[in-house]
């Protein structure tokens, strides 16, 4: 066999081998991608279902906020919250009712589907409202373990989801889903793990990560059916780095009340 022929044969074999390899790799990649896509689709469907089931046109409750610091000191605050609108496109007014020093301090949150929320705060003692700037949303919400961003609603469309697996939370079977904010969404968290109960699609737990470090954990408990919506009556946020936690207990919770649009404006906040 001439040298040229040998070379051609070797080249042909080599090309054939390479073709097989590419095909195999493509098959593997496509297969994996298909699996990931399916899982992602499932995750998104779960989250959409969860959001759909918890959707209400309006909401009102009285909350008790208890902050337990690392030394065990407890401070209480009470507020009433009213929300109008659906996920990602809602408005919310939160008014503190106790203690006396903070009574009538109010917060207006306007959520947008395509960008971070706008937030204003009203302080009656100086009769001033202040805008809480977008870049400040990672700031702790008045000494609690929630940040201003945590007060915003998580619209499904603002995140990418991946189903990580199954898990059990407080004896209930859950899906464990990873969410990553889309580019458009500015978040202090690089990703979150969300546990969704399989029986009623209620959220059971959220863990928030910043650069792969767990920073906050939100636990949902005392999940009850209120007007057909499975709702956690107790939310407990733990700040892992500070070793402190804040417990929010919802009372007198009502959904789909006839709330007026003009109650969710800066003018209304000042009233």
């Amino acid at each position: 066999m001439s040298r040229r022929r040998m070379d051609r044969t070797r080249r042909t074999r080599s090309q054939g081998f390479r073709g097989l390899l590419v095909a195999a790799v493509l098959a593997l990649v496509c297969g994996a991608a298909a699996t990931v896509l399916k899982a992602a689709d499932n995750a998104r469907q779960i989250m959409e279902e969860s959001q759909k089931r918890s959707t209400a046109q309006s909401q009102r409750y009285e909350g008790l906020l208890q902050v337990f610091d690392a030394k065990g000191k407890v401070s209480d605050k009470r507020w009433t919250l009213e929300r109008l609108g659906s996920f990602g496109d809602s408005k919310m007014v939160l008014r503190f009712t106790a203690p006396a020093e903070v009574k009538a301090v109010a917060l207006l949150v306007v959520n947008h589907p395509d960008r971070a929320s706008d937030q204003w705060m009203w302080t009656p003692a100086i009769e001033r409202d202040r805008r809480i700037a977008l870049q400040d949303r990672s700031t702790r919400f008045f000494g609690t373990d929630f940040s201003f961003e945590d007060l915003e609603e998580r619209d499904v469309n603002q995140y990418e989801y991946t189903l990580v697996g199954d898990d059990t939370v407080d004896g209930a079977a859950t899906w464990k889903i990873q969410s990553v904010p889309k580019q458009a969404k500015s978040s202090q968290y690089s990703r979150s793990l969300i546990w969704v109960r399989k029986d009623n699609y209620a959220l059971a737990r959220i863990e928030n990560y910043a650069k792969d470090q767990l920073v906050r954990r939100l636990a949902y408990s005392d999940i009850q059916n209120v007007q057909g919506i499975w709702t956690a009556k107790v939310l407990e946020m733990t700040d892992v780095r500070r070793n402190s936690r804040t417990k929010l207990t919802l009372d007198k919770l009502q959904y789909n009340l006839p709330l007026k649009e003009d109650a969710f404006t800066l003018q209304a906040l000042r009233r």
């Binding site: 401070s75 605050k77 503190f96 203690p99 020093e101 903070v102 301090v105 705060m121 302080t123 009656p124 003692a125 100086i126 702790r140 008045f142 000494g143």
Partner: peptide, 10 residues
């Protein structure tokens, strides 16, 4: 003492 009180009280 309380960040909210800090802001609420001038």
């Amino acid at each position: 003492d309380d960040p909210l009180v800090f802001l609420a009280q001038p």
